[in-house]
């Protein structure tokens, strides 16, 4: 059981990064980015290429991977989001589906379908409460928690964070007070792309990167956002961990004696989670009422 919870924490850290960025974008722009999984993989694959093929050190490769993720996010914003999201908020839902196809094609062309690991080889594992966990995984979990703390500080204790929260609450009112909302929109979209890219790098370090991971990543991030209350960043992060732990427990435990859920159904746990939440609590677990006047 401890092993399953640790596995859930590892998977949850990856999902929390991606869902956190996505929740911020949804809260501010009202845009569901359907290409988020592919953007995560771009970050991971570029880091793999810089580290394994070009031969750069791991820290430099990660910085390079994140820079490319930021650049791709910026281009994506200018071409697939900016011309559409002010006309109708459903248009980017369709255009980002097109973006996901294009990125899928580019990933297959440049990196092929083979599994790619950023750090292949033996892991240095230690035992915690009877469960095995590698040093790399401890670093990943600790770094995510640290990053979330920095994000919390920036959002709640700095002038920039207050501007972001003002735009989240009311775009036009914030602009009338002199906040440059369009610039913040662009910045937050790129930020969400960088967080997704970081998630992809985690994936490439902890497991192998393959193109088929893209949609499960996107769907899990959505499950977390919907369950956490759309636009609520902390709700999304808590639910990302919750879904990841639930996924491990559902397929890892023999619930009724000899009965168990086959591992192939693991990704449907997140989908069932969305379905149940949308049906019985459509506003999400941590939704808050907003003022309309």
């Amino acid at each position: 059981m401890t092993q399953l919870i640790i596995n859930g924490l590892i998977a949850g850290s990856l999902a929390a990064l991606i869902a956190g960025g996505l929740a911020l974008v949804y809260g501010v722009l009202g845009v569901f980015n359907m290409a988020l999984g592919q953007m995560a993989l771009i970050g991971g694959y570029c880091t793999w290429w810089l580290h394994q093929i070009v031969g750069l050190s791991l820290p430099l490769s990660i910085i390079g991977g994140l820079t490319i993720a930021a650049f791709v996010s910026w281009i994506a914003f200018e071409i697939f989001i900016n011309p559409f999201y002010k006309r109708h908020r459903f248009l980017p839902l369709v255009t980002t589906i097109a973006l996901s196809m294009i990125l899928d094609g580019l990933i297959l062309l440049f990196f092929e379908e083979k599994p790619r690991a950023i750090m292949p080889g033996v892991r240095h594992s230690i035992e915690v409460f009877g469960a095995r966990i590698s040093i790399e995984q401890i670093v990943l979990i600790s770094f995510t928690i640290m990053l979330m703390m920095v994000l919390a500080y920036v959002l709640h204790s700095t002038a920039f964070g207050r501007k972001v929260r003002a735009v989240v609450q009311h775009d036009h009112a914030a602009m009338s007070l002199g906040i440059r909302a369009p610039l913040l929109h662009r910045f937050l979209f790129i930020m969400s792309g960088v967080l997704a890219g970081l998630g992809g790098i985690y994936l490439g370090i902890d497991q192998n990167l393959t193109p088929v991971f893209a949609f499960p990543i996107t769907i899990k991030a959505y499950a977390a956002i919907i369950a956490g209350g759309k636009g609520n960043i902390w709700g999304a992060i808590v639910c990302a961990y919750l879904i990841a732990i639930l996924e491990q427990l559902v397929v890892g435990v023999h619930w009724f004696g000899s009965f168990y859920v086959p591992a192939g159904y693991q990704q449907t746990v997140a989908l069932l989670f969305i379905i149940l939440f949308l049906l019985f609590k459509p506003a999400g677990m941590f939704s808050t009422k907003t003022r309309s006047a």
Binding site: F80, P83, F84, A98, L99, M101, I102, G105, L108
Partner: peptide
């Protein structure tokens, strides 16, 4: 061919939505 087809139809989709 597979990836080229994905990219081509993605671009066509973006163009028609625009």
């Amino acid at each position: 061919m597979g990836p080229v087809r994905l990219i081509l139809f993605g671009i066509i989709m973006l163009a028609v939505v625009y």
